[in-house]
Structure formats: structure tokens, C-alpha cells
Design a protein around this nucleic acid. Structure first.
Lengths: 340, 340
DNA sequence: TTGTATGCGTTATCAA
DNA sequence: TTGATAACGCATACAA
């Protein structure tokens, strides 16, 4: 039941300091519009009572919250964590607070979280990927809440976005792999259903194979959930049946590291017997043994810039603009020329 | 600037559905107290207008938010991310929403975040570690916001807490290391200033050495920030000057993995030349090569239980209770008997 | 420089 | 089953 003694309000402070509520309010929001003496008196009362303004009331009266929401699939993924940390730091610089919510990759939960953050008065939203029901974008529209898509840049989409071209990034990586002489490729993919990033990365590999005149039927794809063990299992079945690929690309570093572990368990030498390639370049990649060849995604930069763009939009009305960031191929030890 | 067309309100819906605002409110909160026909009419209007209740107003009128806040040092640490993910899932089960904020390990930021979450109407708070200004606990007291400490269990503290005994956990690990014959120990610690967990772990090592009649002056300690590179650097200086330790314990797995990397770079064989021991058992630990001997902390379980206890307290008034969880020594490849 | 009065969007009490 | 209406805690236009 939780019967808590009501917290002190503006009114309580006003009474204690023997001024009006308006003056107390001014002390907090426009300290220089109030006489110094009054100011000190009021601040003393505030401290004395342990007063803290009620956010809801404040938001309602002021009609803005200085809050920006971020909705990500999961916090248990270092790349999102990194991007968000940078996003938050940037927002803080502009006087905004970040609200995070995670969805476990479930669209229904995402919708719920979007509604929740909007209801909480988020002045704007950061979203991951652009693929979601048109309803949702309409909802944001009618609520007047601007949103910025990240982790994705695609000229074809209309929403403003800050990110990279997942398809091209993966294509470049796959081309590099093909340059090393590999023709039988394997791909351990994240679930592509309702995940535009995962789908684009798969397409990127196919693009590369086609442009190298390889037969895309020589690409074995396994879709799996996020996790080291999942990557290991996927690697297992990839190596199990039919002709083995000589290079296994992965939708992210975590899957790749799982594959790496299983390769070690199976006594398959990396990169002598098989090359393994990741995506994201999280810390795991350089620590893995052998160290992981992967695609570096500028997560921190992405977060920082997204924060800047959104804050600037909300504060100054600067239109939201899209921004394409570059990825980079990081050659480490797990990619080697194919054995001849 | 940001001139957004005002979002539809309860009143707008009431007008559209030709009922009173009270009825609309009831439709959303107590659907069975209203005639079916009216209900459908109202729901249609809600959908039509894209209405979404205003959280602030709702909180103010209802005097509760069904929101529980969590404040952690950083999201860029897998162990917090894991714990929080579990915490959130548990809260969802009870109908609560989680609000996260991170502090970058800065007490001033933490205080700010605490005030912010309280202002936002958090019904309760989850905090990491117990060491903070008495002022803050007083503030929470006067605001009537219950809080639960996690990641720490210590009989001596009065705040309810769900966690483990950092000192004992590390002591047990150190005793195991000593059992393996090591006498010259090194410790790569997180910054102990204003961080009770880090300080307790250091004390734990000293406890173990004392109980084994070792001289604690044979323990070289280096404090450093969080990060793989930081761990590497610390390892460097630990191996650089004076008699080398034969075993290096680390305050967390990330530091340990950094040490591991530098050992490889320096051609120091692990565990033949030096043993390296982590703490936390995040995924990194089993993926590292050689795989990392470490202390397993039940992060998920901790998050889950904290969620349960807090939800139960807020909803049903069940008193907050402390809970001590067990850690476990995970022996992997990086710890071996000392060379004789 | 300060105070008064009103409205923000919702819930909840009380009548109808 | 429904409707009027009074809170809720704050910001702000306006008056003093």
C-alpha cells in the first residue's frame, strides 16, 4: 500500500520562505529575476524541506520536458550500449535527459515503449532501424514527436537517419573476402525477420558474390539469435553438412566469437582451415584469439551526432537532417587467403 | 521553437465520442465499469485521433507512476547491462516500467540522476553500492521513495540490499590462488575512491594473504579506470618494476582481459609464467584465450530478485528485505600452480 | 521585484 | 452506467 508522507511542494516552500509560489518557481528557473536576499531565503527553505520539483506537473505547465527518449533492442549488446552512452553524454551537454527503453527485439514491445516514452513527454525519440508499422510513424506524427533513425542509412527511406549503409558495408567486407580467394562462403546471420540491418547485411554479401560472378547458391546462410552459444551452434551446422565453406562471415562480432570458439573445440584451425569474419568491431573483436577481422562501425560517433542533431532540432528548430557515416574494414588475424 | 500541433487530449476524445472525460478515463482504466457500446465508441475515437494519455498529468492525478528507476555507473559494462535487463523483465511482469540513468561513476552525476528520477515520480529506486552522502538517503527519505541497494551485501550497512559480499568473494578467490602456491600477488583494481565494491575486493585479497600468513607488502596494487586498454597498461607496469608477481588478480574481467592481451604481446606465457584472474564472469571470460579463471557473480539473478522485491514492496507494501547471493569460483585456464 | 490567478491533462469523488 | 467538478503541482501572463 505504500503510505508515503506527501513530498513537499512548491507551496510548502513558499510558505516556509514566506513568499509566493511564483517567486519560488522563479528562483528555480530564472534566478536572476529575483532579489538576492529573497533567493537565499528561498533556497534555504528548499534545502530545509528537501524539496524537489514534480516533473509531471512541471512538464504539464511548461509544455516541454527536455527529455529525449531512446529505444533499443537490448542493452545486452555492447554496440548499443556504446552508442547510447555517447548519445547521452551529448544530450547532457545540451541540457537534455535521456530516457532509455529496450524491446528484446519485439516489435510489439517496441510500440509499447514508443507510446510510453511519448506519454512521458519525450520531446523527441531515437529509434534503431527504420522498419516498423506505418501506424507508428503516423502516431508520432499526430503526437508531434520528431524521431531520428539510427544504425541505418538508406537513401530510399524517408525518415531522417544517422547511420551507415549496412548493405554496402557488408558488401565491401565480402568483396575483400572474395579477393582473398574464397568462393564458398558461409553466413551466420542474425534473424532477418523484422530487422532491416540483418537483412541488408545478407543482401550485401549476395551483391558482392554477384559482382564477382560467384553463384549465390554457394552461400550457406544460417539465421540465429544473438549470443555466443548461438554463434557456436550455427558454426557447427555450417561445418557439418555438405561442402564446407572456406570463409564464414557473421552478422555481428558476438556470433563470430561463438564461431571462433567452436572452431577451436572442433580443432578447425582459424584462419588456416577457415576464415571467420565479424561485424561491429566491439572490444570482443580485438581480444578474441585469433583476433577478429571485422567491420568497424562508428557507434560512439553515431550516438554523439544523433544526440547533437536531435538536441539542435528540439531546442532551435533546426530541421532534422540525415547523415551517412562510414564503416571501415579492420583486417586482423581471422581472415587469410584460401588454402590452395 | 518546435511548434508542434498540440496532441489530442482526453477532452478531445470525449468530444469526438460524445461522452464525458470521466467516461473516457474509465474506458482506459476500468473497462468493465462501462457499457460495452460506449466502450467501443470511445475506443474508436481514441484510435481515430491517435490519442495517448499524458503521463505527467496521469501521475499527478493518480499519485503513482508504476515506474521504478535504476541508476548504474555505466551501461558500457556488460554486467550492469545484464543485471538491468533481468531487472526490467521482472518489473514488466509486475506491470512496472523501468527508467535507467547512468552516472559515469561520478557521485555528483548520481545525485543529479537520483533527483531527476524522483522528480519523474519513480515509485522506487535501484542503486548500485551503498556508499553515498547521507544527504541523499535523507532526501529519499523525505521524498518517501524507497530504495534498494544492489551489487553489494554487507551486514554492516543498514539499507536493504540484494547482492553478494564483495570482500568475501574476492577473499575466497585469493585463497584459491594462494593454494596454488602463489605468494607474490598483483592486483589490478578499479578505482577504489568512492566505490565500495572495488575497495571491498582489495580488502578481500589482503584478508586472504593475512590468513595465509603472507606479507601484504608482497601485494602490488594498481588502480585504474575501466577498460581493456587500461588493464593492459596496468599489467605492463605491474610486470615492469621490481619482483614480478606470479599471479595477477583483477577487479573485473575487462581489466583481466586487457592484462591477458598485454601478456601475449609481451610474450609472457599465461598461465605458465603468470596466472591472471578476473571477476564477474561476463561472456568475455570464457571467450578469452586462454579462458579466464574468474569469480561468477549472479548478475541476472540479482536483477531479477531486486525487481521482485521492489515491485512487491511498492504494490503490496511488503517490507524491503535484504538478500545475500552466492558467488562462485570458476576455474578455467589462466590459473595454474606457481612454477617451482 | 513580487504576487495573483489561470491553465496544463488526468483521476477520483460524488451525484444523477 | 454516466457526468460535473475538484484536486494534483507547477509555470506564466498580467497586475501591482
Amino acid at each position: 500500500m505504500n503510505l508515503k508522507r506527501p513530498a513537499p511542494t512548491l507551496y510548502d516552500v513558499a510558505v516556509a520562505a514566506d513568499v509566493s509560489t511564483a517567486t519560488v518557481s522563479r528562483c528555480m528557473n530564472f534566478p536572476d529575476q529575483v532579489a538576492k536576499k529573497t533567493y537565499y531565503k528561498v533556497m534555504a527553505a528548499i534545502k530545509e524541506l528537501g524539496y524537489s520539483p514534480n516533473f509531471g506537473a512541471k512538464a504539464m505547465a511548461a509544455r516541454r520536458t527536455n527529455t529525449i527518449g531512446a529505444i533499443i533492442p537490448t542493452m545486452e549488446n555492447a554496440m548499443f550500449a556504446r552508442g547510447l552512452e555517447a548519445f547521452q553524454k551529448e544530450l547532457r551537454l545540451h541540457g537534455f535527459t535521456m530516457l532509455v527503453a529496450s524491446t528484446s527485439y519485439r516489435p510489439d514491445v517496441e510500440e509499447e515503449q514508443i507510446r510510453s516514452l511519448v506519454a512521458r513527454g519525450a520531446d523527441a525519440l531515437l529509434l534503431i532501424g527504420h522498419e516498423r508499422e506505418a501506424d507508428i510513424y503516423r502516431f508520432l506524427e499526430t503526437q508531434g514527436v520528431p524521431s531520428l533513425i539510427t544504425w541505418v542509412f538508406d537513401e530510399k527511406i524517408t525518415q531522417p537517419s544517422v547511420g551507415f549503409d549496412n548493405r554496402v558495408a557488408m558488401m565491401e567486407m565480402a568483396m575483400k573476402v572474395i579477393e582473398f580467394g574464397h568462393t564458398r562462403l558461409g553466413f551466420i546471420s542474425a534473424i532477418t525477420f523484422q530487422n532491416d540491418r540483418a537483412a541488408a547485411r545478407l543482401d550485401g554479401i549476395k551483391d558482392a558474390m554477384k559482382s564477382a560472378a560467384l553463384n549465390t547458391s554457394d552461400l550457406s546462410v544460417i539465421e540465429t539469435n544473438y549470443g555466443i552459444d548461438e554463434g557456436a551452434k550455427a558454426f557447427d551446422s555450417l561445418m557439418g553438412n555438405g561442402p564446407r565453406p572456406t570463409a564464414v562471415l557473421c552478422g555481428n562480432d558476438v556470433l563470430a566469437v561463438g564461431a571462433l570458439r567452436r572452431a577451436r573445440e572442433l580443432k578447425i584451425a582459424v584462419p588456416q582451415d577457415v576464415s571467420i569474419i565479424g561485424f561491429d568491431d566491439i572490444e570482443l573483436a580485438q581480444v578474441a584469439y585469433p583476433s577478429l577481422t571485422t567491420v568497424r562501425v562508428p557507434h560512439r560517433d553515431m550516438g554523439r551526432r544523433a544526440g547533437h542533431i536531435l538536441a539542435d532540432h528540439v531546442k532551435n528548430g533546426t530541421p532534422l537532417k540525415s547523415l551517412q557515416l562510414k564503416t571501415e574494414i579492420i583486417l586482423r588475424e581471422t581472415l587469410a587467403p584460401v588454402k590452395t
